[in-house]
Simulated assay, not measured.
Amino acid sequence: MAYYPERRSLRRRLKPYFTVFDWPLAMILFMLVTTSMITMSSAGAEFPGRVESQMRNFILAFVVMWVASLIPPQTLMRLAVPIYTFGITLLIAVAMFGIIKKGARRWLHLGIDIQPSEIMKIATPLMIAWYFQQRAKVTEWKSFLVAAVLLLIPFVLIAKQPDLGTALLVGASGFYVIFLAGLPWKVLFGLAVAAAASMPVAWSMLHDYQRERVMTLIDPTSDPLGKGFHIIQSVIAIGSGGIMGKGFTQGTQGQLEFVPEQTTDFVFSVYSEEFGLVGNLFLLVIYLLLIGRGAMIAANAPNMFSRLLAGAITMIFFTYAFVNMGMVSGILPVVGVPLPFMSYGGTAFITLGLGAGILMSIQRHRKLVQT
């Protein structure tokens, strides 16, 4: 008698592709996206099509996250070197014949204008995590030196565009991997002392607009209608929200467009004015849950590569949130860092969605290994 294998239903065949999500992480991201859309409905009211465009960004980020969650960490290890090499090649191409916008050479035209530095936010920690995985049994000071070189190459190329904000984010993402790989505290202390001693040299190497941002942070009232306008209006908006906020679409600073870049870098100001301290605490709790879930995934990862990569991505989320909130609150210089999963923007959402998808892939792989 001939044997005919049982045909699986379409639902059973598709099920594995939709069970890749880490549902605690997915629910946290859903809360952030919902909060973002509510805020964008108010902050983007005077920008036709901004809300619809943000929804398209969310959908694109979801697709990227879903695809990334399907890729096993072993495959990511094999892709680490090609992706890093491709990103460095694009950065060199930008330096040679990139497009100049607003005085900076950051974009490359490949049918559409792309910003290769965004690739390095994931490619750099991916490459360094791969390197430490290869040397898991022989980690020594030479390993940390090579990792530092792998980090410095994209950092220098991006800083020279100039794009110090993105360079610092890329540098932070790579540094987190090196630190989590076991960088000795003595070395870390020595680096801190060296960085402090080199501040005068670093100051002389900054561009004029970068020095102005630092001076504006120290005293924004020195140029209240110019360089200090952003910070002053942002702080006014945050403070005027009080405990409970002024209410949805009732903020004066945001609705009257005193807050600059109110849908992108300074969206937190609009949110704070309308939802107050209570809303801020709610948002902080969501970010703490996001960071906590990422830390749990990293702690339970099955190998060094997965642990380092998950830990670095989690710290990237923390850095985005900390720097943005500090920036709009007037305690950090304005460096153009978006609030993760809240600010308007397509490229940043793709990067963040990719990072979230990698976390989900690592968590799913852990479950498969255990079973």
Rank of each mutant, 00 (worst) to 15 (best):
R50M: 14
T85D: 08
L79H: 02
P72E: 15
N57A: 09
R56K: 14
A45C: 06
S69G: 13
F58C: 05
T34R: 12
F58P: 03
Y84K: 08
P73G: 07
G87W: 01
S41K: 02
V81E: 08
S41Q: 05
R78M: 12
T75R: 15
L76I: 11
F58R: 05
T35C: 11
S42G: 06
V63I: 11
S53E: 15
L60S: 05
P82R: 08
L70F: 10
F62S: 14
T35R: 11
E46L: 05
Y84Q: 06
V51E: 05
L32A: 05
A61T: 02
W66V: 00
A68W: 09
R56A: 11
V81C: 08
G49N: 13
F47E: 09
P48S: 14
L79I: 07
P48A: 11
V33D: 10
R78K: 15
Q74Y: 15
L79W: 00
A45S: 07
G49L: 12
T35Q: 10
L79A: 01
M40E: 05
F58Q: 05
S53G: 13
I38N: 12
R56C: 11
S69C: 10
I59Y: 11
T34S: 13
V63Y: 01
I59E: 11
N57T: 11
F86R: 00
A61E: 02
W66A: 01
E46S: 02
V33F: 08
V63E: 07
E46G: 03
T39E: 03
S41M: 09
A80H: 04
M40W: 05
L32T: 01
A45T: 02
T39S: 04
L79E: 03
S42K: 00
V51W: 00
I38P: 06
T85S: 14
Q54A: 02
F58S: 01
R56E: 14
P82Q: 10
V51C: 09
S41G: 10
I38V: 14
L60P: 01
M55A: 07
V63N: 07
T39I: 02
T85L: 13
G49I: 12
I59G: 09
F47T: 06
L70T: 10
L60H: 06
S53H: 13
T35E: 11
M77Q: 15
F86C: 03
S36L: 04
A68V: 12
F62I: 10
I83E: 04
L32V: 03
M77R: 15
F86E: 00
S69H: 14
G49F: 12
P48E: 13
S53I: 05
T35F: 09
S42P: 01
M37I: 15
N57D: 12
S42M: 03
Q54W: 02
G87Q: 03
